[in-house]
C-alpha cells in the first residue's frame, strides 16, 4: 500500500512542475472570468451563465488534464526509462500503474478544487452568497475525470501518447453522445438500431455524470442522482484499470 502513495506523490510532484498544465489552467481561469461579460449580455441570466460556463470550463479543462496526464505520465516513464530503476526495486508493476493513476487523481482533484474556489470568487461579483448546490455537479465532474484518466492510462499501457490521446478523446466523445444515441434509438423504427442504441447507452454513457443543468437551473437533485452515477463511474474505473494492469504486467520495456 505504501508504494502506491510514494509513486502517487512523485507523480503529483511531476505534474506540479508541468508548464503545459499551468498554461491550460490560466486559459481556463481567463475563460471563467470572461463568462462575467457573457452574463452581462444575457437577459437577467448573469448568475446562470457564469455558473454554466464556469462548470463547463472545469469539465473541459479537467478532461484535457486527465487525457494529457494519462497518456503522457506513463509514456514518459517508459520513454525516459525512469521506470527501470523503479521496477528493479521490490515494487510490482501494478503498484507503478495504480500509483501513477492515484497521483493523477490527486492532480485532478487539486485542479478542480482550485478552479471551484476561483469560480466561487467570480460568482461573488454577482451574488453575495456561496451556492453549495454546485458541489454535487463538481463531485460528478471529478468522477467523470477519474473515468477519463483511467481510459487514458488503459490506452497508454500499450500505445504511444498520440494514439492513446486520439483513442481516449474518441471514446470520451462517444460517451458524451451515447445518451442522444439512446434517445434516437427509442424513437427509431429499425429494431436492430433500437437494440444497439439503447444497449450502448445502458453500458457506456458519460452524460450520466452531467448534473450541470440541474444545479444551474436549480432543479431538484436527489441523493441517487449523485450516488448512482458515482457507483457507475467506479465500475468503469475498475474495469479500465483491471484491463490496464493485465496489459502492463507482461509488457517488455525496451
Amino acid at each position: 500500500m505504501r508504494h502506491y502513495f510514494i509513486i502517487a506523490a512523485n507523480t503529483y510532484s511531476e505534474a506540479r512542475h508541468n508548464k503545459v498544465l499551468h498554461i491550460a489552467g490560466g486559459f481556463a481561469a481567463a475563460l471563467i472570468l470572461f463568462s462575467l461579460f457573457m452574463g452581462e449580455v444575457s437577459l437577467y441570466q448573469n448568475e446562470k451563465v457564469v455558473k454554466d460556463v464556469g462548470l463547463a470550463c472545469i469539465s473541459i479543462f479537467g478532461v484535457f488534464v486527465a487525457i494529457y496526464l494519462g497518456v503522457n505520465t506513463l509514456f514518459k516513464e517508459l520513454e525516459r526509462r525512469t521506470i527501470y530503476s523503479v521496477v528493479s526495486k521490490p515494487v510490482d508493476r501494478h503498484e507503478v500503474l495504480l500509483g501513477k493513476y492515484l497521483g493523477m487523481i490527486m492532480v485532478l482533484i487539486s485542479v478542480v478544487f482550485m478552479m471551484t474556489v476561483y469560480l466561487y470568487l467570480v460568482t461573488a461579483f454577482i451574488e453575495s452568497k456561496v451556492d453549495w448546490a454546485l458541489l454535487p455537479a463538481i463531485g460528478l465532474i471529478i468522477v467523470e475525470l477519474a473515468v477519463v484518466a483511467a481510459m487514458a492510462v488503459f490506452f497508454a499501457s500499450f500505445s504511444t501518447p498520440f494514439l492513446s490521446g486520439f483513442f481516449c478523446l474518441g471514446l470520451f466523445l462517444i460517451g458524451r453522445i451515447t445518451h442522444d444515441l439512446g434517445a434516437f434509438g427509442e424513437r427509431s423504427k429499425n429494431p436492430l438500431f433500437k437494440i444497439f442504441a439503447t444497449w450502448i447507452q445502458k453500458i457506456y454513457d458519460l452524460e450520466a455524470f452531467d448534473l450541470r443543468t440541474h444545479v444551474v437551473h436549480k432543479l431538484p437533485v436527489y441523493a441517487e442522482d449523485f450516488w448512482l452515477p458515482a457507483a457507475y463511474g467506479l465500475f468503469l474505473i475498475g474495469i479500465l484499470l483491471t484491463l490496464s494492469i493485465l496489459t502492463f504486467r507482461r509488457r517488455d520495456f525496451k
Binding site: R2, H3, I6, I7, N10, S13, E14, R16, H17, R80, R81, T82, Y84, S85, V86, S88, K89, P90, V91
Partner: peptide
C-alpha cells in the same frame, strides 16, 4: 539488490535528496 541502468535519466524536478528519499522509500 542495487541497480544502475544504462544511460540513466532520472526525475529532473527532484533534488538529489528527494530523489534518494524516493528510491529509499520504495526499498522500504
Amino acid at each position: 539488490i542495487g541497480f544502475l541502468p544504462e544511460n540513466p535519466y532520472f526525475y529532473d524536478y527532484l533534488t538529489s535528496r528527494q530523489f534518494l528519499m524516493f528510491h529509499g522509500q520504495l526499498l522500504g
